[in-house]
């Protein structure tokens, strides 16, 4: 007469399968529909024998329930009275899932009406660029807009950090509106440092409800860009226009960034959901290794058990990833490193006066603001490599 107590799990039908997970630990898996039936029976308090009989009746053949319960235990889905902890998904990350605001308060911000407004603002932005192409940024004019490298750093970096933080808050608030919680961290994409919001709990809601949390960050970006463009149309003061142009430049660069799905951006997550994939990032790696004949026996087995949707998407996404990776390396070498060299030379010049001069510290702080993120990303990469060996 054994029963098994399960933790509060989310169960979402997903095509012919069921997506089951523990939102508290961020562990989610897909199982065949019969597995969903077993979990529902166990949750109801049915004994192992009763569950086995029910499952056999549904499947038309005996189902190995003890083996499945062992798997559920391994996944941490069985309630053993302890408080579970979510595994880290980023190198620097808060442990706690953040609620913070009530669902009811933020729901109007991410309902159907709100999303229609965000779409309308996006159309407005495109229309402004069509009518006033001079407002479209040019890198030469807007990247170091204030003439002085130091002034650009002092003004740009904090603005950029603030809008990135707002973008992440957009994800979090949209997740709250869907009744989910998120957690914040810092991660890297190749050599770039990023703020990251863990939205893994979206697997606990039906497929259509996942888009709002995934696109919540870009909704904030669109509203900001719309405001910057509206302000640009309204003012004719040259200095204010130049400052607004920098903001527009940064926002558009942010949209370009999101399009780089091979860097696992927001639009990558949207694409995964559209294609019905669940483990594309890993399957892409396995398929790429296979293409270069570097698949181990264990990996061959892992690939064989991957879903058809993941393998289908992975077969072309691996090349998108490879081309994107090479493209970013090229961009970094051609466009970023020369700027880094200019900044270093500028800082070295300014610091040659020695630490008693005010300019020494000004240049040091500016160089740290501009180059700090790259150094931190490099540090994270080194740490990853060490923990792997």
């Amino acid at each position: 007469m054994t029963t098994v107590r399960l933790r509060p799990l989310s169960i979402v039908p997903e095509g012919e399968e069921v997506l089951v997970g523990d939102p508290e630990t961020g562990t989610f898996v897909t199982i065949p529909a019969i597995g969903g039936l077993v979990i529902e029976a166990l949750t109801r308090g049915a004994t192992i024998d009763e569950v086995a009989a029910e499952a056999e009746a549904a499947a038309g053949q005996p189902v190995d329930i003890p083996a499945f319960v062992a798997t559920l235990t391994e996944l941490g889905f069985v309630d053993d009275g302890s408080r579970p902890e979510a595994a880290a998904t980023a190198p620097i990350q808060g442990k706690r899932w953040v609620a913070g605001v009530s669902e009811r308060v933020v729901r109007p911000l991410f309902g159907r009406v709100a999303w229609c407004c965000y779409a309308a603002i996006a159309v407005f932005c495109v229309a402004v660029f069509v009518v006033r192409p001079d407002l479209f940024p040019s890198a030469a004019r807007d990247a170091f807009p204030f003439g002085d490298i130091g002034l650009s750093a002092v003004l740009l970096v904090p603005f950029s950090m603030a809008t990135m933080a707002l973008h992440e808050c957009g994800h979090w608030l949209a997740a709250r509106a869907a009744g989910l919680r998120a957690r914040f961290g810092v991660d890297r994409r190749m050599m770039l440092l990023v703020f990251e919001t863990d939205l893994t709990q979206v697997w606990g809601v039906p497929r259509k409800q996942r888009y709002s949390p995934l696109l919540g960050g870009m909704a904030v970006d669109v509203v900001l860009l719309g405001a910057l463009l509206a302000a640009s149309l309204a003012v004719d003061d040259a200095a204010v226009s130049a400052a607004l142009a920098v903001g527009i430049y940064l926002k558009l660069a942010g949209f370009l960034w999101q399009c780089m799905v091979f860097l696992r951006t927001d639009l990558y997550a949207v694409m995964v959901n559209l294609l019905g994939c669940h483990n594309l990032w890993r399957v892409k790696t396995l398929l790429l290794r296979r293409a270069f004949g570097r698949l181990s026996a264990a990996e061959t087995e892992e690939l064989a058990s991957a879903s058809a949707a993941d393998r289908r998407a992975g077969s072309w996404f691996r090349w998108v990833w490879l081309a994107g990776f090479a493209g970013v390396l090229g961009w970094f070498a051609l466009f970023v490193l020369p700027v880094v060299a200019v900044v270093l030379r500028w800082a070295a010049d300014g610091m040659s006066a020695g630490p008693l001069a005010g300019r020494f510290w000004y240049c040091l702080v500016c160089a740290a603001l501009l180059l700090g993120p790259y150094l931190l990303a490099a540090g994270l990469a080194v740490r990853e490599r060490r923990s792997r060996t």
């Binding site: 065949p32 994800h171 990023v194 863990d198």
Partner: peptide, 18 residues
Amino acid sequence: MTIEVRKVESVKATGNDA
């Protein structure tokens, strides 16, 4: 029959404008 389980990846949202 045994019930096969497939792993589901984590979902990471990022912002950047570098």
